[in-house]
């Protein structure tokens, strides 16, 4: 088990093993996405009140769920980098940030598109929307801080500290905005309503959530591989790969 842990610190090993994982995971992800989205967008029954507009849930909810999970992936990778000084954790943290930010943006965008026909407005300062917006800012802050440092080792550590501070902030924001909102207006808007979702809508939703998790993993791994090549541009293993002309 420990040899596995040590191997994680080796860029060539991580590069080749992630290549093997991607060769299997990427097709599975694409198939799951295709099936889940076609099922959700074309073959489920229309909602009783919202008609067809609710179908965006099959993109919106998975993106939001995985965006939140992505922050924790990033923060945990940062913590591992701080505690055990693992370079690969730093690579994972750096690579997770843009993917998470993109998913958060997709969640916000689809939320706005969904909000227009349902609530009659693009944007509401609702608890969840505001907390997602803050999540986007946290992601962008991490990316901006990383880019600002010339010394990339220091950048990784500084971003890890920022991620951990932000992680404390997420539950506080979530709760506080709930309080703040309920003070002004009754909570008239809810994402899914009181009634639990019907199973005919639930199954495709679960499938798309799983597919988005797999998509996040694929994007993370591909980002990490690019980063590994970039960092190792002057090392012999990258040179060997480049001369062999192999991609895995």
């Amino acid at each position: 088990m420990w040899s596995f842990f040590h191997k994680l610190g080796s860029p060539p090993w991580l590069y080749s093993i992630s290549g093997v994982i991607l060769r299997w995971l990427l097709p599975i992800t694409l198939v799951a996405l295709a099936v889940g989205l076609t099922w959700g967008l074309l073959f489920t029954v229309p909602d009783f009140r919202q008609g067809n507009s609710y179908r965006i849930i099959y993109i919106h909810v998975p993106a939001a769920v995985v965006a939140l999970a992505g922050y924790y992936v990033m923060a945990i990778a940062g913590a591992i980098n701080l505690i055990w000084k693992m370079k690969m954790a730093d690579v994972a943290m750096k690579s997770a940030a843009p993917v998470g930010a993109a998913l958060t943006f997709v969640a916000l965008l689809t939320g706005a598109i969904w909000g227009k026909p349902t609530w009659g407005t693009w944007w509401v300062w609702d608890a969840r929307i505001t907390s997602m917006l803050i999540l986007l800012f946290l992601y962008l802050g991490v990316i901006a801080l990383y880019e600002a440092f010339d010394n990339k080792e220091a950048a990784g550590k500084a971003c890890a500290v920022l991620c951990l501070v932000g992680m404390v902030n997420i539950p506080i924001i979530y709760k506080s905005v709930d309080w703040w909102y309920s003070l002004h207006q009754p909570a008239s808007i809810k994402f899914t309503g009181d009634s639990s979702i019907d199973t005919s809508m639930l199954y495709p939703l679960l499938l798309t959530i799983a597919a988005f998790y797999a998509l996040f993993t694929c994007c993370l791994l591909m980002n990490m591989r690019a980063e590994l090549l970039q960092r190792g541009a002057r090392t012999s293993w990258v040179k060997k790969l480049a001369l062999a002309g192999k991609s895995t």
Binding site: A144, V161, L162
Partner: peptide
């Protein structure tokens, strides 16, 4: 976090403002 950076001024607001919101 930004004290060593030459252009820290704008960056610090990006980092800190989300944490100020609560």
């Amino acid at each position: 976090l930004t004290v060593g950076l030459k252009r820290g001024g704008m960056l610090i607001s990006l980092l800190v403002l989300p944490l100020y919101m609560p």
